[in-house]
Structures are given as structure tokens and as C-alpha cells.
Design a protein around this nucleic acid. Structure first.
Lengths: 337, 337
DNA sequence: TTGTATGCGTTATCAC
DNA sequence: GTGATAACGCATACAA
């Protein structure tokens, strides 16, 4: 309850000036006699003094004690695990993470960015929902590092991007199915406005073309990241006059919804339908049958993101685009048609 | 790149003093002529001015613009969903959330608390790992609201607690199984040092006593929240000379590990073993057989936690202990032995 | 209704 | 080695 100790309290308790205390707190910022330092440290200990972050941030503008993490939805296990790793990486560098969620709502995203601006965070890592050009621009204008992870958006100059090689992973999934003999492959992907959605369908289509498999646009479904439309897409695909014999769920956010629909319909996997999924949760292995998955190297995504977000902010720095390799894990949910 | 606008820039651009700008920014803090306000707002807009949070926090000490959320592990879906709701509740009050994880490591927890102290957060919501008496005390000493959620620890005077009624929920699970005819019920719970672990085993034991079912300490396993010991506990229970015919996994963090072991052993559920689980993830319904669960009202836990964490800090305020009701959801994983 | 001046807790620049 | 002192950006008591 007593007003907490300030640098001044420590100074007078140790019988020195605040300048000396400051030097003790920030080693290397100036000379302090060993004996004096000990006295100061004792006073600090005794008063339980902790320098106020707010004051520090105010003083040294370029601080970077905080990182903004703007996720669509922490409920999604993929994002949750990403958050976990980001927090870990940041902490190991003495940086804290401000977590915000957009629920895929551009308005909320805008709001999040505004507060991030107010806070002058060192950098922001985000799964962008929409191009809020003004907001992102304002952030960049403050010379804040912007890192898009998992997804990315065009039209945001200067933003870094970290994701898996989506074209390649989609290729692997489709190749796997084509090799098994499938010719009609349903593909549920993210919105076409998202780089992720575009890349994954592109990889898929490329393989079909190379293998001479007939393309049918009705088999490719672009589904929003949020909501239950993953289930509807499954329903629509299976209701087709010539339904698919295999399915790739390439929209991480919709995996559970899609599988729930499958279970509900009593569709036998892989007997009636082979399934590959872009998601790696412990439960995908517990699922019956164990699911064939694309495993994203989440720790690596986080490491690169934090690295870029906390980089020395040279405004001229070339925006980087990092693609890490995902792992294809064949399990029991895929078989010959 | 240009140094971002300050209140002074706005003032001179609008041809007024900074005091006026401040009043415009904080409505209700003083009178401003409508016409003047418009001019100021225009300048703010034009300069893309945003007041710096650091400066505000420094000035008004009681601010509460930030909330600390100290979780054991965001990878755990239960905590992830809790985080999601906490962020939501906080945001709706204009408060941001600083996310930190302890990985059940007292040392990391201590570190997290230290930085929270430096930041003078409005309150902290935590799933405490160990009693770091000094750390928690220092926090309370700063008149910071401390809310323990899900678990709680004794020895931390002044801390609020929000959780489900663990005794009651454990009772329901055990009653359900006893009603089905089970007499040997395995019980995997959290550490005995955690209030959660104690309450759940207490509820379990109370029912056995009431129903005249023989108690066997070998059937009750206390397992740490972190690691793979949930699986080992399952193995140990099934290796008993007289193995259980039913199992309650009352350690939310160990649910997946326990089930994985079950799956690995090929134990038939519920034929060989009925299973009740303290966890409500979408996938518990997708699991084969669909799991009988205790559904925790996560949104409510979050709402109460944020409420308490952001409450007016009257240091004399009575520490509150809120218990909300969980829902028992019988599904296919439980049957007569 | 508006403006001036002071302080919040630090860091950093100088003299000493 | 150490100590005054001036910012940092904002809110506010008080004067005008």
C-alpha cells in the first residue's frame, strides 16, 4: 500500500545520487565503485525496488520491451501453440508479449493495431485478417517491425512474412493421394484473398496438371477461417453427383468443423474417403483412424517471427519472406480408393 | 520514420495549448468549446496522433491499462480457451493482456511476477505453480489484484480465487460411475499441493464413503500438471492385481497423455474401462467413443477473473472465492462394467 | 473556456 | 567516480 520505492528512495537510502543508482541498474552505462555498488544493491534489495517500465519506455524511445502478437483466435490449437512458442522466444530475450485477438474481424484488428501504436511496441507478429492499409501503414511509419506469420497479405509494403512452404506442402498432400490412385480429390482451403489459400490451391492444381488428372472447380472450396463453413463444404462436396474419394483440408482453422461433419455423416475413413489435414494436434493421432497430416514446424515459425520482430529497426531493411519446411506424416486416414 | 507526433505538435497545429488537447483526448476531464474541439480533432486526425501509453501510465499511477495473465502452458487447450476469453473480456474494457507462461517452473513464475511488478499492471490472473511467497507478497504489497484461476494456492493472503466447484464435479463423475455399477474406480488427479487436486480427490472419496464402496489408495494417483506422467499413471493402474473398471482423469493437463496410453494399450472403452474426463475440447466428441466429460464454463471463469483483476483496488477488500458450476456431460465412454 | 507550470520515474549529459 | 539537471510525453491544479 505504501507508495512503492523509486530510484530516489534507493538513492537516499544508499546515500548516493540517483545517477549512481541508475548506473548500477544498467551495468555498462558508467563507472561505479565496487563498494558503492554493493551499498546500492543492498538498498535495492531492502526496499524491494524495481525500476518502472513505463518510465524507462518513456525515456528511451527505442526500447522494445514489448511485442504485439495479433492472432485471429487463440482457441485454434495451431495459434495457441504458436503463441506459446512466441512467448517463449520473446521471454528468452527479456521481452514481454501483448496478446490480442481479432476473431477475423477487421474492425477488431484495426483497434488492436491502434493500441499497439500507442504502446510503441518493438514489433508486431500477426495473422492478418484484412488489409487495413492505413493501420499497417501507420505502424510501419513508426518504424515498427511487422511480421506476418502463417498467412500474409499483399499491399502491405515493408512487412516480413514467415510461413511454411504452402505450395510444396499442398503438393505433397495431393501427390500422396494421386499416388494412391485417387482421381477426384476434394480440397478445402482458406479464402482466396489469403496468400495461404492461394498458395495451397496452386500447389494442389499444379500436381493435378502434371499428373494429367482432370480438374474440377467444384472440388475446390474456399472457406473463411472463421465459422462452421468447413462442415458445410464437406457436405457440399459429398453431395456432388460425382463425389470425391479423397479430401484435403487445407484450412487449419476449419479442420475440426470438417471432421465433425464427416463423423456426423458416418462417412467411413479411409474406406469411403481418404483424408489429409493441415494440422498437427496430439489428438489427430488419437483420432480413429489416425489422421494423415501436414505437420507445421511451429517452433521454427515462432523463432523466425520473433527474430524479425525484434530486429534492429533499420527502416530501410529489406522485407524478408521466410518459408520453412513442413513435414508430411502419412497415417491411417489415407488409402487407395 | 519522422518522430511521431506528440501532444505538443497537435496543440501547435490546432493553435491551442496542450492542456486543451489533453481535455479533448480525455472527455470529461474539463470543458472545451465545441468549435475548439473540432479543430483539435482535425489536427489529431491529420497528424495521426496517438497518445503514448507509457507517458499516461507514468502520470496516472492507478491506470490499469494492462493485465498480466500468467498461465502454466498455452498449449493446453483449456488454458488456451481461457486466454482467449480473458483477452476478450479485457479488451471490452479497453485493457490489454500481457501473456506469460511458466511451464510449471517456479523459477519462470518468479521471473514473470517480477516483470509484472515492474509494469505495475492493474491486476494479474494466474494459474499458480508454486508458492513463491515473496513474489506474490510483493505484488500484493503494490496493491495489485491477484486472481488465481482454475487452481489456487494457500499461503497467499489477499488473493482471489475463481474456479469450478471441484468437489461437486468430482462427486458427479464418481456418482455416475458408481451408479453404473463400478466398484473399482481409478482416479488420476493433479498434485496434492494444488487445491484443485485436493478438492477433486475429496469429492471422489466422499462419494465412495457414502456409497459404501471400498477405498483403495492405490487407485488414486496424483500426477504433476506437466510431463507425460498421466500415461504412466494409466499404465500403473491397469497393471494393478485388481485393475479398475472405470477411470476418472481429473487432471486436465494430463488428459491427452492418459488417453494416448489407453489407445496404445488397446484398452477397449468402455467395454474394458469406462472413462470420464475433466476437459471439454471439441475433439472429445470426435473421439471414438465420444467421451463423457466435465465441461468447465470457461467464459464464466474468464469473466469473473477479469472482473476481480480489474476491480477498484481497495487494499482492504475482502479476498473473494468464486466457484462456478461445471456441467456433467455423459456420452459414450462410460457404461456398466 | 483556455493557458501555464509542475511532476510522474527514468536515463543521459555534463560538470565536478 | 559521482552528482546536479534536463528531457521524455502526458495529465492536472491553478491562474487568467
Amino acid at each position: 500500500m505504501a507508495r512503492s520505492a523509486t530510484i530516489r528512495d534507493v538513492a537516499s537510502a544508499a546515500g548516493v545520487s540517483i545517477a549512481v543508482v541508475s548506473r548500477v541498474i544498467n551495468p555498462g552505462s558508467g563507472p561505479v565503485r565496487a563498494e558503492t555498488r554493493d551499498r546500492v544493491l543492498a538498498a535495492i534489495e531492502q526496499l524491494a525496488y524495481r525500476p518502472r517500465t513505463a518510465a524507462r519506455e518513456l525515456k528511451q524511445a527505442g526500447a522494445a520491451t514489448t511485442l504485439g502478437l495479433v492472432l485471429a483466435d487463440v482457441t485454434n490449437p495451431f495459434f495457441a501453440r504458436l503463441a506459446d512458442r512466441v512467448v517463449w522466444e520473446a521471454r528468452s530475450r527479456g521481452v514481454q508479449v501483448l496478446l490480442m485477438t481479432t476473431q477475423e474481424d477487421p474492425h477488431l484488428e484495426e483497434e488492436a493495431l491502434a493500441t499497439l501504436v500507442s504502446r510503441r511496441v518493438g514489433g508486431v507478429i500477426a495473422t492478418p485478417t484484412a488489409t487495413n492499409p492505413d493501420s499497417w501503414a501507420r505502424l510501419r511509419q513508426l518504424d515498427t517491425n511487422v511480421v506476418f506469420v502463417d498467412r500474409s497479405l499483399d499491399d502491405v509494403p515493408g512487412a516480413h512474412t514467415v510461413s511454411i512452404d504452402n505450395v510444396r506442402s499442398a503438393r505433397q498432400a495431393t501427390e500422396h493421394l494421386v499416388d494412391l490412385g485417387h482421381r477426384r480429390i476434394g480440397f478445402i482451403s482458406g479464402p482466396e484473398t489469403s496468400s495461404t489459400g492461394r498458395a495451397r490451391t496452386a500447389g494442389h492444381r499444379a500436381v493435378l496438371a502434371e499428373r494429367g488428372v482432370e480438374q474440377d472447380d467444384a472440388l475446390v472450396r474456399h472457406v473463411p477461417f472463421r465459422g462452421e463453413q468447413g462442415g458445410d463444404a464437406v457436405g457440399a462436396l459429398l453431395a456432388l453427383p460425382e463425389p470425391p474419394t479423397a479430401l484435403v483440408v487445407a484450412n487449419t482453422a476449419q479442420v475440426v468443423a470438417a471432421l465433425r461433419r464427416l463423423r456426423l455423416r458416418g462417412t467411413a475413413v479411409p474406406a469411403d474417403l481418404s483424408v489429409v489435414v493441415f494440422d498437427d494436434d496430439p489428438w489427430t493421432e488419437l483420432f480413429e483412424p489416425a489422421l494423415t497430416i501436414i505437420r507445421q514446424p511451429i517452433a521454427m515459425l515462432a523463432a523466425h517471427s520473433v527474430e524479425l520482430a525484434l530486429a534492429e529497426r533499420a527502416s530501410a531493411a529489406e522485407p524478408r519472406s521466410i518459408a520453412v519446411e513442413a513435414e508430411f506424416v502419412p497415417r491411417a486416414s489415407t488409402s487407395a480408393p
